[in-house]
Simulated scan of single mutants.
Amino acid sequence: MRSTYAVVLAAGKGTRMKSDLPKVLHPVCGKPMVEHITDHLKNLNTNEIVTVVGHKKEMIQEQLGHSVQYAVQEEQLGTAHAVKMSEELLGDKEGTTLIITGDTPLITEKTLDYLLEHHHQTNAAGTILTMLPEDPSGYGRIVRNASGNVKRIVEQKDATEEEKEIQEVNTGIFCFDNQLLFSALQEVDSNNNQSEYYLPDVIEILQKKQHTISASVMENVEEGLGINDRIQLSKAEHIMQQRILETHMKNGVTIVDPKTTFIEADVVIGRDTTIEPRTHLRGQTRIGEHCVIGPDVDLLDYDVKDQMKIHNFSMTNDVCSIPLGS
């Protein structure tokens, strides 16, 4: 059985957020964006997860605790440099390493699982998760050769005008043969407009050595949304909230007015429960079956037994609930 490792890049300052909080700790539907990533990786039975931290690293370590390992990037010298910080923990391992940025909370387990499967099926040294956004501005472009195989990735700031017309872009999520990855990282230089060590350069290094490079195109472009400012954070919140509501409805929950209902990521709701308008369920709240919750309820970390009705309350512990039919 193949071993799978993961490196989560979470060292950046996120200056465009204009916040005292590290970017990757900003919540999306009640959970820090980086924790959405690490939870997915745990569910995929990843053997080891290494989170690369830097800016305000203590806050990220406190949030994620001992569920992951940590590598420290003291100086922000680019994504290749960040991954290289995990070499002491992963450099001698055999298997596949998945690399993902900590600011892409909309990625799904299904997409990551498919990426890993595609990587193994193609027997590739490196596999890129790509997407086809309507506007590719700001993304690294996927440059293919005449046969359609991946040749390299060129960053927006280093791209020619012709390369900027390429629609297929890099999501920043990769799979690599672990030992080939750390070998190639030794050859990455900072000869570019930003004087940084780019992880995508590993693709060109491996390709020039005649290793197979594959690409898996993401079906749903919204999964590749990286969050760099509060506007993108708001968009991600909206997209994830819609997913959460639809998942509960598919599982047998009635949501009377989705437009005024807010349910955070870790909330559990039993079947045949009705959620009335203006209800906000947060944290680790657990709702049983055949309940009526709302209208005008805000619950945080609260357990509701089966067949209970709660309305017109905003409480965390001592909320007043009454049996249905009373």
Rank of each mutant, 00 (worst) to 15 (best):
P136Q: 03
D189P: 10
E62M: 11
I37H: 02
M308Y: 07
F262N: 12
N170W: 00
G91E: 08
L129I: 08
E187D: 13
I142C: 11
E74I: 11
E163R: 10
Q241Y: 02
Q210D: 15
V7P: 04
I60L: 14
F182S: 04
H36W: 13
K56C: 09
G14T: 09
E223W: 01
D177C: 11
S321N: 06
V292N: 04
T247A: 07
H36Q: 05
N149H: 14
R271I: 11
V52R: 03
V7W: 00
N220T: 12
T212I: 15
S147L: 13
Y5S: 06
I142T: 07
L9K: 01
Q284C: 10
G102K: 01
K309Q: 13
H118G: 01
L206E: 08
R152P: 05
H248Q: 07
D298H: 13
D296N: 15
T122I: 06
E163N: 12
T130G: 10
L44S: 04
M315T: 12
E196Y: 14
H40D: 08
M33P: 03
L185S: 10
T254H: 10
H81E: 12
N191F: 11
F174K: 06
P22D: 06
Y302D: 00
G78P: 04
V319Y: 12
A146V: 13
P27W: 00
M33K: 01
G126T: 12
E48Q: 14
A159E: 06
A265K: 12
N149P: 03
H118E: 14
N47T: 13
E74D: 15
L64D: 08
M59P: 06
H248R: 02
V268L: 10
P22F: 06
M315Q: 15
S190K: 15
T15A: 15
T160V: 07
H36E: 03
N178I: 14
L21S: 09
Q156T: 13
L299E: 00
Q76S: 15
C291G: 03
G14P: 12
D201A: 13
G252M: 06
H120Y: 12
K250W: 00
L199I: 11
N228H: 15
G95N: 09
Q179F: 03
E276P: 00
Y70M: 02
R243S: 11
L98W: 04
M1W: 10
P105R: 01
V150R: 05
G91I: 09
K42L: 13
H119I: 08
T316W: 01
G148H: 03
S3D: 15
L281G: 02
V188Q: 06
E168M: 07
P200N: 05
T130I: 07
I49F: 05
K209W: 05
P295M: 04
Q307I: 04
D158P: 05
H81C: 11
H40A: 03
E222I: 13
K42E: 14
H290P: 00
S321E: 12
P133E: 09
C320E: 15
E222A: 13
